[in-house]
Computed example of a mutant assay.
Amino acid sequence: MEAVAYSNFRANLKSYMKKVNDDSDVIIVTNKKPEENVVVLSKIDYDNLIENNYILNNQYLMEKIQRADKQFNAGKGIIRDLIEVDDD
């Protein structure tokens, strides 16, 4: 995670946006007042964070995941190869 001053971030916005998207890097944009700092992350990483938060806070889904994990660890799971489909 990189921290960059607001003025530097503003002057190099395009390159920082590219870095965030290409590297899944998170950037902290700092300000003179620390309570005004912001975090910049890609839309994909943001969506992932929101989805993970939703799942972790959904008791029904977490119970299903935990049941499946117990079954798999007890040797009741089946490992299958993924089938790749062309998007033509």
Results as ranks from 00 to 15, higher is better:
residue 74 A to T: 01
residue 79 I to S: 14
residue 63 E to C: 06
residue 23 D to N: 12
residue 67 R to T: 02
residue 81 D to L: 10
residue 65 I to P: 02
residue 21 N to Y: 06
residue 40 V to E: 02
residue 78 I to G: 03
residue 79 I to Y: 14
residue 52 N to R: 08
residue 52 N to A: 05
residue 48 N to H: 09
residue 42 S to P: 00
residue 25 D to V: 10
residue 65 I to K: 08
residue 55 I to K: 10
residue 49 L to M: 09
residue 69 D to L: 07
residue 61 L to K: 06
residue 25 D to I: 06
residue 23 D to C: 09
residue 80 R to H: 04
residue 41 L to Q: 04
residue 53 N to D: 03
residue 64 K to G: 05
residue 39 V to G: 07
residue 36 E to W: 05
residue 49 L to F: 06
residue 50 I to M: 14
residue 27 I to P: 01
residue 48 N to K: 14
residue 37 N to P: 00
residue 80 R to M: 11
residue 52 N to F: 04
residue 45 D to Q: 12
residue 71 Q to R: 13
residue 26 V to K: 13
residue 45 D to G: 08
residue 68 A to D: 02
residue 70 K to C: 08
residue 51 E to W: 04
residue 45 D to M: 13
residue 73 N to E: 15
residue 64 K to Q: 10
residue 20 V to F: 09
residue 33 K to Y: 07
residue 80 R to L: 13
residue 70 K to N: 11
residue 27 I to L: 13
residue 48 N to Y: 11
residue 62 M to I: 02
residue 57 N to C: 09
residue 29 V to C: 06
residue 72 F to T: 02
residue 30 T to C: 06
residue 38 V to R: 10
residue 68 A to C: 03
residue 56 L to Q: 14
residue 51 E to N: 07
residue 52 N to S: 05
residue 35 E to Y: 11
residue 61 L to E: 02
residue 76 K to F: 09
residue 44 I to F: 10
